[in-house]
Nucleic acid binder design. Structure first.
Length: 541
RNA sequence: GACCGGUUCGUCUAGGGGUUAGGACACCGCCCUUUCACGGCGGCAACACGGGUUCAAAUCCCGUACCGGUUACCA
């Protein structure tokens, strides 16, 4: 039988990282088994469901690359079928009308009041105590016909137990006595979750239900419904929950946008990196490997490798450096510095574009950024693209762009860094990090004279261009080797350390204190910008 | 309260009767270096507790503690 799994979120907010992980596991499972991955939006809670939420879920899944194989199912459009299933069970005597007046929902703290009520009952509640359970069919019909409102409840047998083998948690058993006569249909005619899920899963031909552990006890109720309906239940597998630091459930109300998938997209995470991180939250292939491509995840994934214990999603709200799980941040950085440039470049392009830093010259006709480009990070000056080593006019070209990105990506954590920390590479309008100015400039006041002087020297040595008859440049090109020799001599002349000069220059050129080798920075900025920025007094004021 | 689960470094985890309990992130130190959040080397750091079973328990059994889930005419 072909495997068919589904991800079934309710559209009552953004896509939660835990839900995203459930979607991912479903997807991996389906792909590995050659099955289908389906999406069903459980929008039966009219009061809380929103279209915006549905869009956000769809967006999030698309970002992660989890595309459903069939048309999206909206649960609300199946309400009629759910209703008739309930009535069928009623007609067969497997369910009954409950004329108990509906209790008023006590607002915000429903969960707490339920818990309190249960605690007060001391756990000795008789689940079969409903007086309408044994009401005669005639009487029941009569009252219904008279217009008295009623809910339909499943008639759970008095003795026995539901059992199933969970793909993660193993054999599960629950006495009927512990399961109430659950409501299938509300008195206003709306089907309830457990009925809707079962009906839809049957209708969609779901073979394996992989979902959060919070549904583990629901499963027993659902099996009861399958049995009443006379349909064999699918396989079930429940996933451990993702907790916040301190061991509490990761929730929107308490933990805010940290739990939303879109937060990560918007913060400059790579989908591949976050997917990789998510896959490892609660699953392991049992090997010492951390970086997995999607294909590898599909190949290696197994329910047996899913843990039974919940994982903690670590983060520190007030620490900008650790605003989310540090392993997630590390993994994103790892992807940024090691992934093929052809995959990274288009993402950087998008980032620069949205920061208004993108220039069409970086991707001229016939040179798509998606074409395979070898990393030049370890290449010597002679092996680099021509446009890089020769300063203008190639400066700002495709080759310059590719080389620059490859250079600066080594120390970046997110795509945002390309437009933030890396802004000075693409724009004249960049800020100076006060800490960098303090540490690298103000601490050495002489630099205010020296650096502009260095600029003048640069100009006289590298500025004029002479060419021979063949059109080859014969004077000093502004390249690492030449710059190094020159700056060293200049530093010696001033009687200071090379580091002082270099770091001062770094701050003026890039606005920050960290980055690649300063020689590369000079080269990549080009002579013109280097001179202008070394002379600028903006940072000094 | 009841039912169901869980508990290996701070975090993610490997290991499922005999291991110096392994890796990764984070952290610390050293090296490289013009800086650095790159890289290299090294370090710190864990089997919740108590009983059993066994020659031998992180690993199997029981109990306790703690944590989580569920206990709706929410999903």
């Amino acid at each position: 039988m072909t495997v068919r799994v589904r991800f079934a979120p309710s559209p009552t907010g953004y896509l939660h990282v835990g839900a995203a992980r459930a979607a991912l596991y479903n997807y991996l499972f389906a792909r590995q088994k050659g099955g289908k991955f389906l999406l069903r939006i459980e929008d039966t809670d009219l009061a809380r469901s929103t279209d915006e939420s549905t869009r956000s879920i769809l967006e999030g899944l698309a970002w992660l690359g989890l595309h459903p194989d069939e048309e999206v199912v909206f649960q609300s459009s199946n309400a009629g079928k759910h209703r008739s299933a309930a009535h069928k069970l009623l007609a067969e005597g497997r369910a009954y009308r409950d004329f108990t007046p509906k209790a008023e929902p006590n607002d915000a703290n429903v969960k707490d009041s339920i818990k309190d009520r249960a605690r007060a009952a001391q756990g000795v509640k008789d689940m079969r105590a409903n007086p309408f359970r044994e009401l005669s069919a005639d009487e029941s019909e009569k009252r219904a016909a008279a217009g008295e409102p009623f809910a339909i409840r499943l008639k759970v047998p008095k003795s026995g137990a539901t059992e199933f083998d969970d793909g993660v948690f193993g054999r599960q058993r629950r006495e009927y006595a512990d399961t109430e006569d659950l409501v299938l249909l509300r008195s206003d005619g709306h089907p309830l979750y457990n009925l809707a899920v079962v009906c839809d899963d049957i209708e969609m031909g779901i073979t394996d239900v992989i979902r959060g552990q919070d549904h583990l006890t629901n499963t027993h109720k659902q099996i009861l419904i399958y049995e009443a309906l006379g349909v064999p239940p699918p396989h079930f597998a429940h996933l451990p929950l993702i907790l916040a630091p301190g061991g509490k459930k990761l929730s929107k109300r308490i933990h805010g946008e940290i739990v939303s998938l879109t937060t990560y997209r918007d913060a400059g995470f790579l989908a591949a990196a976050f997917r990789n991180f998510l896959a490892l939250m609660g699953w392991s292939a049992g090997e010492e490997k951390e970086i997995y491509s999607l294909d590898e995840l599909i190949e290696k994934f197994s329910l047996a490798g899913v843990h039974r214990s919940s994982a903690i999603f670590n983060y520190e709200p007030n620490n900008p450096k650790r605003w989310t799980d540090d392993k997630a941040i590390w993994m994103n950085a790892e992807y940024i510095r090691t992934m093929p440039l052809a995959e990274l470049l288009p993402l950087v392009k998008e980032e620069l574009r949205s920061a208004k830093l993108w220039r069409e010259e970086y991707e001229p006709d016939g040179r798509a950024l998606t074409e395979t480009v070898p990393s030049t990070a370890d290449a010597g000056p002679d092996e680099r693209p021509a446009g890089v080593a020769l300063d203008l006019p190639e400066h700002g070209s495709y080759d310059w762009f590719v080389y620059t990105i490859d250079l600066i990506r080594q120390r970046f954590f997110t795509l945002k860094d390309f437009s933030g920390q890396g802004r000075a590479y693409f724009s004249e309008d960049f800020d100076f990090d006060p800490a960098a100015v303090e540490k690298n400039l103000k601490k050495f006041p002489e630099l205010q004279q020296w650096l502009p002087e260095l600029a003048d020297r640069f100009e006289s040595v590298f500025g004029e261009e002479w060419y021979n008859d063949l059109g080859e440049r014969v004077n000093h090109p502004f390249t690492e080797t030449n710059i190094e020799e020159f700056v060293k001599a200049f530093t010696e002349e001033k009687g200071t350390k090379l580091g002082v000069m270099m770091n001062g220059a770094r701050t003026l050129l890039t606005g920050v204190a960290v980055g690649p080798s300063m020689l590369s920075v000079f080269e990549v900025m080009g002579l013109e910008k280097t001179i202008r920025r070394l002379k600028s007094q903006v940072a000094w004021n």
